[in-house]
Design a protein around this nucleic acid. Structure first.
Ligand SMILES: Nc1nc2c(ncn2[C@H]2C[C@H](O)[C@@H](COP(=O)(O)OP(=O)(O)OP(=O)(O)O)O2)c(=O)[nH]1
Ligand SMILES: [Mg+2]
Ligand SMILES: [Mg+2]
Ligand SMILES: [Zn+2]
Length: 563
DNA sequence: GCCGTTTTCGGCCCGACTGTTTTCAGTCG
């Protein structure tokens, strides 16, 4: 899958165009890049099918560049741009405070081509003498260089959300704000998060900002005013706080939730209707006609309310205009969890501790799916141990009759597509989760065959963490996802949305594609501790981003009697 | 360079904060 590579190419082209003051084209390239990096289908396949121009925001010009890149592995157009402007645009632009205009001036006046040149010039105090620059700009640049490495680090929703909730709670507890909400990609439940965006309503923004700075105790202050404040925490995480009046809260929440492309599309709809939309409200001439709530804005634009998770400009605005936003699955719909571990393999809690937690969540069933087989690193069970586990499950079941405990196992898919479990044991389970834990580095075809062959076995309920990626640690393995979806459908196997913070696998683009193909999904936590069962909300967020309804999710319904 | 239930040409979201400016351009959300 070369989608990210192609998106990076288009972004780089956009950067050079922007620095050379070409109007509008940069945004066209950026829009195309954004769409392509969240596409479920491999761009190579779309190209081979001759369908590049079917991708929204890709037209003749960009399609040609993509085709050339996929064919030859390089782009003559980018090469030409780089020849005309021989600088490391990507690196220079990644310095905070440096944009295309400044980068151009630095190159024209001091021949600054890369970070090294930039650092040297700043240290020699040459930058402050350029017209339009000054001492402060020079210092900002030096500071920007020291913060460089941390910038592109996106972290998992599972790690960022608790942090954001804690900040929000402290802000509310300070009594310096009336209301506070988490906004941005966190509110949209995006699986990876660039920064924490907080919105607050207050009549005294100055005091609210002071309270925020006390709570955040940041290591760097990026900006501070009456309406917003941006900081970097000691952890390196950026936090943006936006403050508005109470009557503006809905409009501000709409703005700050994004996504950016959803906002732009919505604002264009407003323009077409003769209105203006910004973070303070929806305006007709200079009169505010909506803004107290998000709902009021969508309504006045002739749309149904759009759930935050859907706001990615992927057609949700058209659906909202038709009033056909689908009902999305909710956390409350979840009846149980099929993927959990106990001390019988690499979990850290007893069966009963996990069951008690599941009961407290109101579940009607819980599947215990400890590792089975030869997976040493996960302390996988052998036949003797799983039989002992079944006895214990039976005993715990008697003590906890209100929740149904199902006997599962997580089984490794061997390199050759066989399963690391004897057929007799597989048959005697209530269900199996199969997943790849070894030999990630295989060819795409080989991996596809491996997984599809594995799905031929009986008694498989779920394909676990279907892409094998670990956020910030390991890229997904190469696999033909369309084939996996087809095989899953054929064998009535659900694809997993694994809610572990490091995994978030499937992520929403693939989950959405799978559901569109009619494939069913199982949202699981893969909990190794009782409290980890609460990770379910992250998985539900991803499912909502995939436009999943209750009917698409196998654990959003009561257990069927096993046939 | 892309796009279109008023358009195949003429638009392309809108505002806060900063630094360097005597009135605003640049960068960022
Ligand atoms: N209208 C408009 N809104 C924007 C723009 N940039 C950002 N926003 C809004 C929508 C974003 O979701 C929100 C927060 O900005 P962020 O840069 O933090 O983006 P977001 O949180 O969506 O993604 P992230 O995970 O932080 O990279 O602000 C823009 O250029 N125009
Ligand atoms: Mg954000
Ligand atoms: Mg932000
Ligand atoms: Zn597991």
């Amino acid at each position: 899958m070369k989608n990210q590579e192609v998106a990076d190419l288009l972004r780089e082209i956009a950067e050079y165009l922007e620095i050379t003051d070409v109007p509008f084209k940069p945004r066209a390239y950026q829009r195309a890049a954004l769409v392509i990096e969240t596409l479920a289908e491999p761009i190579e396949d779309i190209w081979k099918a001759g369908k590049l121009e079917d991708i929204p925001s890709v037209g003749e010009g960009i399609a040609k560049k993509i085709a050339e890149y996929l064919e030859k592995g390089k782009s003559a157009y980018l090469k030409k741009l780089k020849k005309e402007l021989p600088i490391d645009a990507d690196a220079l632009l990644s310095v905070g405070g440096l944009g295309p205009k400044k980068v151009k001036i630095l190159y024209k006046t001091l021949n600054i081509k890369n970070i090294e040149d930039l650092k040297k010039a700043a240290e020699q105090k040459k930058i402050r003498n350029i017209e339009g620059f000054g001492e402060k700009t020079e210092n900002t640049i030096l500071e920007g260089i020291t913060f460089l490495q941390k910038t592109e680090n996106r972290i998992s929703l599972g790690f960022a959300l608790p942090l954001a909730e804690s900040l929000k709670d402290q802000l509310l507890a300070s009594k310096r704000v009336h209301t506070a909400e988490i906004a941005g990609s966190l509110r949209r439940s995006k699986e990876t998060i660039g920064d924490i965006d907080l919105l607050a309503a207050s009549d005294n923004p100055k005091r609210a900002v002071e309270a925020f700075l006390t709570i955040a105790a940041p290591k760097a202050l990026l900006g501070k005013g009456e309406k917003k404040c941006s900081v970097i925490l000691t952890s390196g995480m950026q936090v943006d706080l936006r403050i508005v009046k109470r009557e503006e809260f809905g409009a501000a929440l709409q703005y700050f939730t994004g996504s950016k492309s959803h906002n732009i599309a919505l604002r264009n709809k407003a323009i077409k209707k003769g209105y203006k939309l910004n973070e303070y409200g929806l305006f007709k001439r200079n009169k505010r006609i909506a803004g107290g709530t998000e709902d009021s804005i969508y309504k006045k634009l002739g749309m149904a309310f759009i759930p935050p998770e859907m706001r990615e400009n992927l057609g949700e605005i058209q659906l909202a205009e038709k009033g056909s936003i689908p009902p999305l699955v909710k956390l409350k719909d979840i009846k149980g969890d099929f993927h959990t571990h106990t001390i019988y393999s690499d979990g850290r809690a007893s069966i009963e501790e996990m069951i008690k937690k599941a009961e407290s969540l109101g579940y009607s069933f819980i599947g215990i799916s400890d590792h089975f087989g030869h997976l040493r690193i996960a302390n996988a069970m052998d036949e003797q141990r799983i039989k002992k586990q079944w006895k214990e499950i039976n005993a715990v079941q008697k003590k906890h009759p209100k929740i149904k405990i199902v006997k599962g196992a997580e089984v490794n898919i061997n390199k050759d597509g066989s399963l690391d479990i004897p057929p007799a044991v597989l048959r005697s389970l209530d269900y199996a989760i199969i997943s790849v834990h070894t030999n990630f580095k295989m060819g795409k075809q080989e991996m596809t065959k491996r997984i599809c062959d594995a799905m031929e076995h009986e008694n498989i309920l779920v394909l676990g963490h279907p892409t094998g990626g670990m956020i910030g640690e390991r890229k997904p393995y190469e696999v033909d996802f369309d084939e996996v979806v087809l095989a899953a459908k054929q064998h009535n196997i659900a694809l997993e949305i694994n809610s572990q913070s490091k995994r978030m696998d499937l992520a929403s683009p693939l989950a959405k594609a799978a559901i569109e193909q009619g494939c069913r999904v199982s949202i699981n936590t893969d909990a190794h501790y009782p409290d980890s069962l609460e990770f379910m909300r992250f998985g539900v967020g991803i499912a909502r981003r995939a436009w999943a309804g209750k009917a698409d999710i196998i654990n959003a319904k009561e257990l069927k009697q096993k046939s």
